[in-house]
């Protein structure tokens, strides 16, 4: 199983809300990702930066920015292969 799993770093700028993190995690979970590391940092009164190391099928990595930026409170997404 592990051969086709790859790690990536995911950085999101989000509008802070009660549900933004669970929504992001639900989308990652649905595509089979494991979150290995997760940190959140307040940027200003309304914005936060989420940084995650994730592991999952490489074919989804490039799709993640589009998938996650559909979420209403997500403003920006970048993915970097590790």
């Amino acid at each position: 199983m592990a051969e086709y799993k790859n790690k990536a770093r995911l950085v999101l700028r989000v509008r802070q809300s009660v549900t933004v993190l669970p929504r992001c995690l639900q989308n990652l979970s649905r595509r089979g990702y494991i979150v290995l590391e997760l940190s959140t940092k307040t940027v200003d009164a309304t914005t936060a930066k989420l940084t995650m190391t994730i592991e999952g099928e490489q074919r989804w990595h490039s799709a993640l920015p589009h998938l996650l930026s559909r979420l209403v409170d997500v403003e920006d997404v970048t993915v970097e292969e590790l």
Partner: peptide
């Protein structure tokens, strides 16, 4: 209801 419906809505507000 927010978490119950999360995967099947575009967004939700409480």
């Amino acid at each position: 209801v927010i978490n119950l419906s999360m995967p099947v809505v575009k967004h939700s507000y409480q």
